[in-house]
């Protein structure tokens, strides 16, 4: 039997508390403090949920996720992680909470190019948990196997295909055993087969895979094409005209007449047109 990579204690203890909560939050671009990209976000992400956030390219999806992950400071409003206000956390508290929120960036996932694939995945384990090389190796091998990266273990990310680079980023995020995993447009530019792998993989994680201790992991996915996600996500939201609009579940999604939703479900645009 595979060993669990995560600790179950914090999850059961805080089951009732939203893992991430945004109250009246305004999100700005990472490189600019001027106008807000998304305003008045009131959003609670609870344990076991699988959110899919759709929006046109440039609507602020990436910045919303970066803010949720604590990488961008919100322009206004309150951000809470596991019931605690992020701005009031001390360094240790911030570190403890942030390590439970994983993020996979868009376009290759930003792996560290000076490290090999295996070193990328091992880095957070070695940095935070001070584990022995044997323990790290064992854990990393499981994650490599899960992500289908065993054969690429000793290559640097710049030498692998972009789709595999994205998997490296997922594997690296999973190494921290996060309670919430934020994925920024993970299917962008992927071939159908690779996209299928991602959807299956995320479905496994959402259902509770051995790699995350058999517990359902909370997922938040952004996308600009809702079609692959319509039968995957459990909760849906749209980013439209600087507002985050929760749409409900699959049933509500099927009956909604929201024009942007129809557009995203038909995917009648391409990123090049925007």
């Amino acid at each position: 039997m595979k060993e669990s990579l995560s600790s179950a204690a914090p999850r059961s203890k805080e089951a009732a508390v939203p893992l991430i909560e945004m109250i009246g939050l305004s999100v700005g671009a990472a490189d600019s403090s001027e106008s807000a990209l998304v305003e008045e976000v009131n959003w609670s992400i609870c344990s076991g949920e699988y959110w899919v956030v759709g929006g046109l390219p440039g609507s602020g999806k990436s910045d919303l996720l970066a803010t949720a992950a604590g990488l961008n400071r919100p322009q206004r409003g309150t951000l809470r992680w596991f019931g605690k206000e992020v701005s009031e956390l001390d360094e240790e508290g911030l570190k403890a909470s942030r390590s439970r929120v994983g993020i996979v960036f868009e376009n290759g996932g930003r792996p560290f190019n000076h490290l090999t694939v295996v070193e990328n995945i091992a880095l957070p384990l070695r940095y935070h948990r001070n584990r022995s090389p044997a323990e790290v190796r064992e854990t990393v091998e499981k994650i490599l196997q899960f992500a289908g990266l065993t054969l690429l273990a000793n290559m640097t990310p710049s030498r692998v295909k972009p789709a595999e680079r994205q998997r490296v980023a997922l594997a690296r995020a999973l190494a921290m055993s996060p309670d919430v995993l934020l994925l920024d447009n993970p299917l962008a530019g992927l071939a159908a087969q690779e996209a299928r792998w991602w959807r299956d993989c995320l479905a496994d994680l959402s259902a509770g895979h051995d790699i995350v201790g058999g517990q359902p992991i909370t997922l938040v996915v952004t996308c600009d094409d809702l079609r692959p996600w319509a039968d995957q996500g459990k909760q849906f939201a749209l980013l439209n005209q600087k507002r985050l609009m929760p749409m409900g579940g699959r049933v509500e999604l099927a009956h909604s007449a929201e024009p942007l939703l129809q557009e995203l479900l038909a995917a009648q645009f391409s990123t090049g047109q925007i």
């Binding site: 570190k95 993020i103 190019n113 957070p124 935070h128 980023a169 690296r172």
Partner: peptide, 12 residues
């Protein structure tokens, strides 16, 4: 390339 933000995301 955004690697510094990736480090921050890993609490490094």
């Amino acid at each position: 390339m955004g690697e510094v933000e990736a480090l921050e995301a890993l609490c490094i």
